[in-house]
Amino acid sequence: MGYYVKVEPNVKIYVEDINRGGEKTILFIHGWPANHKLFEYQFNKLPKMGYRCIGIDLRGFGESDKPWNGYSYNKLADDILGVVEALKLENFTLAGHSVGGAISVRYMARHNGYGVSKLVLIAAAAPTFIKRSEFPYGLEKEDVNKLIQETYEDRPKMLKNFGDMFFFQHVTEGFAEWFFQLGLQAAGYSTAALATSLRDESLFSDLNKIFVPTLILHGVHDKICPFSLAEAQEKEIQNSKLVPFENSGHGLFWEEREKFNQELIKFIGE
């Protein structure tokens, strides 16, 4: 079931709500530059097992409104709060991938984890997406600058190249095209704006404000958010557990989807 939630007078967020009668709820936050459809292989299975799966499209992406402004971590975390309040969600699991993981971390710190009972960080872009003087892990700032420049100059080419980095395992031509089309559904300016937030924002002071049980799932071969980010997350977040995915890159929810789904289910059931 799909519908819209108004988070600002002129901004509506698209929500895909599957199995509303499920006993336990998981709210999925997608990564850059895709949308909620990234979690197709979770939405296919988890509702059958009694889970309510909610996927949202971040503003500027997928079927959500695409305003010119509002792509900071704070604003995107506020959008999540707007959805949580509108749907009256309580005692749910928040699961964020890549920048969606970063936004989930900011949500936990900024809104005191409102309504969240458990957190899942999936190849999360935290505590920082780029290398910094105090943290020598992540992408080079110049590489992100190049992504932003290519977004403005030839976004389809940028998306194709990014897709080649995304997965460790071989993907079929059809799957690569499907993944490419997810990125095209975003606005070019929102794609660039969120990449700018990825480059400029950090979460060093947010991680120690997370107090719910946290599961960290991360591909060992991730070329976008290297595995060292997951190790830093586990070190800084209380009551956290890191599960490495030995045969995955950034797309572990597809590359090792059976293991991914099992780890998620086990964690929620604990």
Rank of each mutant, 00 (worst) to 15 (best):
M49F: 12
D143E: 14
K209Y: 01
Y41N: 13
I130P: 01
S240H: 10
L207C: 01
E231F: 04
L139V: 06
L121S: 04
D200I: 01
A192S: 11
N69L: 13
E255T: 10
L94D: 00
Y189P: 00
D164M: 11
S197W: 03
M1W: 02
G174M: 08
A186M: 06
P9N: 15
F28S: 05
P33H: 12
D57V: 11
Y73T: 04
K88C: 00
K12Y: 01
F204W: 12
V220R: 15
E255N: 12
L207W: 05
V243A: 06
Q149Y: 13
V7I: 13
K66L: 07
K160M: 10
Y41Q: 04
P33C: 11
Y73N: 11
Y51P: 01
G70V: 05
G249T: 04
K157Y: 09
N161R: 12
C225K: 03
S98I: 02
K24F: 01
E16Q: 14
K12W: 04
D200L: 12
W32S: 04
T191Y: 08
G70H: 06
K209A: 01
G22M: 09
N91P: 00
E234Y: 05
D57S: 14
A109E: 05
K6R: 14
V5F: 11
K12F: 03
G115I: 06
N247P: 00
G2L: 09
I29M: 15
I148V: 09
E63C: 02
K259Y: 02
E263G: 05
I216F: 06
H30R: 12
K259M: 10
F204L: 12
A86V: 00
I80N: 02
S98P: 00
V105Y: 03
N145T: 03
F267D: 01
A195V: 00
G100K: 10
R110M: 01
E134S: 10
K12C: 00
Y4F: 15
W32D: 03
F267Y: 08
I237T: 02
V7Q: 09
T128I: 05
E63K: 15
K241F: 03
W68K: 14
L198K: 02
K223L: 15
K118M: 07
R132W: 00
N247Y: 14
N247R: 15
F179K: 09
G82Y: 10
F179I: 04
C53D: 00
K118H: 11
M1N: 05
Y73R: 09
R59K: 14
F167W: 15
F167Y: 15
I237W: 03
E258T: 11
G2H: 11
G22D: 07
G22L: 12
N35K: 09
H30W: 10
L46V: 03
A95E: 06
A109H: 03
G101P: 05
L121K: 08
P226C: 13
A126N: 00
H36W: 13
A193S: 15
V7G: 07
R52H: 12
F180A: 02
T191G: 01
P67L: 12
Q262M: 08
G138K: 07
K141D: 02
G251P: 03
Q262Y: 09
M158V: 06
Q238R: 14
G70S: 08
E90A: 10
E256W: 11
G96C: 10
L119F: 08
A192L: 09
S104D: 03
G101E: 04
